[in-house]
Amino acid sequence: MTRASLRSRSEIPTARRVVVKVGSSSISGANAGQIAPLVDALAAAHARGTEVILVSSGAIATGMPYLKLDARPSDLATQQAAAAVGQNILVFRYQDSLRRYEITAGQVLLTAGDLENPTHRSNAQRAMDRLLGLRILPIVNENDTVATHEIRFGDNDRLAALVSQLVGADALVLLSDVDALYTRPPQEPGAVKIETVPVGDELAGVTFGDIGAAGVGTGGAATKVSAARLAAAAGTAVLVTSTANVAEALSGADIGTWFEPASLMREPSATGSIALG
């Protein structure tokens, strides 16, 4: 499938296929109530004909209270147990909210090995394409129940970038607790919002802190930059913003940090080389 070359945030509503990634801290625990407004935004995009894929973290965090855990478990077996319980509850919460719009969700659980194995990758791509063709909203997560430390994606920002490549998405929206990327952690004096990241921009002198609630999620600003570069290098435009701004993001508002896709690369003298970092 040929993806569109989006030139700005304002063109996101015209995208044929969009991947939205939301982190654990945004939709679990005290923030579980953010699922409803997130679904509102996804449903609005779905209603105008956009094919939407949601990459959602949160299985382990959602399962923790049911295992009577106060903190994210460090051992793999307990992480797997929490994920087994939490994934079921998380998808139920999404489907319960999507029912208001008569949208059906389809659960897709992947491991890094699935996307590295050509046969598994082809099967995943075919399944996703068919779900979208049937107007089903795929909800993708790492298969934490069977994934081992050796074959994990590392964080769902990277998973979202790889899914964007898999489905040929026009845009990837990476959501967190912060409205954009800044030159340093936004709570520090002198932090300046980064509006646009051209292809090949090394973001020299930028210092990234963590994004998300400590001990719940695994990603941060640095993982979002790495994932955004990976997706942008493959031709998918990327917007990094907060979960609270998802409706505005999908409506094309001038918010967040925009990563230009490689298909819009200017002359080499203006941008330098692509950094996948």
Rank of each mutant, 00 (worst) to 15 (best):
L6K: 13
I12R: 10
A15Y: 11
V20D: 08
S28V: 07
A30T: 05
D40W: 13
E51T: 14
L54K: 10
A59P: 04
A61N: 10
A61C: 12
Y66H: 15
A71T: 11
R72D: 07
S74A: 15
L76D: 03
G86P: 07
R93G: 04
L98N: 07
R99K: 14
R100A: 15
Y101P: 02
A105Y: 03
L109S: 13
G113L: 03
E116S: 13
H120T: 13
R121Y: 15
R121F: 14
A124C: 09
Q125V: 11
Q125A: 15
V140G: 01
N143W: 01
D144H: 10
T148N: 04
G154Y: 15
D157R: 04
A161E: 06
A161W: 12
L162Y: 06
V167A: 13
L174I: 14
V178H: 00
V178Q: 09
T183P: 11
P185I: 07
P185N: 08
P186N: 07
A204C: 14
V206K: 04
G209C: 04
D210T: 12
G212Y: 03
G212R: 05
G212L: 01
G215F: 07
T218K: 08
T218L: 07
T218H: 09
G220V: 05
A221T: 14
A221K: 03
V225T: 06
A233P: 00
A234W: 02
V238K: 03
L239A: 08
T241D: 10
A249G: 01
S251D: 03
D254I: 05
I255N: 09
W258D: 09
L264A: 08
P268M: 04
G272R: 02
